[in-house]
Amino acid sequence: MMTQIVFYVFAAVLVLSATMVVCARNPVHSVLFLILAFFNAAGLFLIAGAEFLAMTLVIVYVGAVAVLFLFVVMMLDVRFAQMREGVQRYAPIGAAVGGVLLVELIMAFTHWRVAGNIGQITHLVPSSPTRTNTAALGDVLYTHYIFLFQTCALVLLVAMIGAIVLTLRDRPTGRRQNIDRQHDRVPQESLEMLQVPLGAGVAAQGGFLRPHDSYDVAAVPGTYGTEAWRAREAAEQTQTALVVITPAQGAKGQDDE
């Protein structure tokens, strides 16, 4: 009896919060109602015994997606008054699409039938009172569907690498280091120990100090910040200064004569 009461409470709050997501005028309030709807859906999953889906819903959707929506809505200067100007124009189209979806849902629920041999269906993982759904789901993913699971991970990895490669730009201000030389460094090559008097502070000693060639030790020769880069920049500035030619005074008057 208590389970049914809790179910109806969660279901009622879920329906009301989902309705407010659509009907709320303030987009920040809509996102907050969406978070409330996710929490109530997680409670329904817990009542059904699917604790893995409940925790996934809270961690992924509430902790990442909904909070991201909230940050985007609060940080972007979106003029919602202008966005609502064309609502009345497209209202009949939206009503027609909603009516079609409503008819499809009614037809689906009216023809819903439960299979008579539902109790005879064999399960991939034998049920046990001491075994959780998370452990059973792990057995299914990492035994029967391990190749499909790893293939999905490989596809996501390729997509991530492709996005990085497509957006990567070679910038001259990038600092590159020789990894082997970086690992071989000793503290004396990158740190300078100072005896700072009590109460004087680091600013009185000239700020944070380190050897001038501390970056050159492990940096790739010629990259940004190295001695060779500074010399090349100085040479380019000197050459640019020499190329500049100032117009001679009185040239225009001589041409006019």
Rank of each mutant, 00 (worst) to 15 (best):
F80E: 12
G99D: 04
A108V: 07
A91K: 12
G99K: 01
I59M: 10
G94P: 01
V87R: 14
F52D: 09
P92C: 05
R113Q: 11
I93C: 08
I47F: 12
A108N: 02
F109A: 13
M55C: 12
I47H: 11
V78D: 03
M83F: 15
G86I: 07
L105N: 02
T110A: 04
M107W: 03
R89P: 06
V97K: 11
A95K: 07
I93A: 06
H111I: 01
A54T: 01
M83P: 06
L57K: 07
R79C: 09
F80R: 14
F109E: 08
G99R: 02
A95L: 07
G98S: 04
T56W: 06
L105T: 05
A96Y: 07
A91L: 11
V65Q: 07
T110D: 05
F69T: 09
G86C: 00
V78E: 11
L68I: 11
A66H: 05
V103E: 03
Q88Y: 08
R89M: 12
R89S: 12
A108C: 02
H111F: 10
A95F: 08
T56M: 10
E85W: 08
E104R: 06
L70D: 07
L102V: 02
A95G: 00
V103H: 03
E104A: 07
V58H: 04
A91I: 11
V65H: 02
I106N: 03
A81S: 13
F69R: 12
V97S: 07
T56K: 07
A91M: 05
F71A: 15
G94L: 02
A48W: 09
F69I: 13
G49I: 14
L70P: 09
R84V: 13
I59V: 15
A66L: 03
V87A: 13
A91V: 10
G49W: 08
W112Y: 14
R84D: 15
V97R: 05
A50R: 00
R113S: 09
F71D: 14
A108E: 08
D77T: 04
H111V: 02
L76V: 11
V58M: 06
P92D: 08
A81V: 15
Y90R: 13
I59E: 10
M107N: 03
L70C: 10
L57C: 14
M55W: 01
T110P: 01
V67I: 15
I59G: 02
V58I: 11
I93K: 08
W112S: 08
A54R: 00
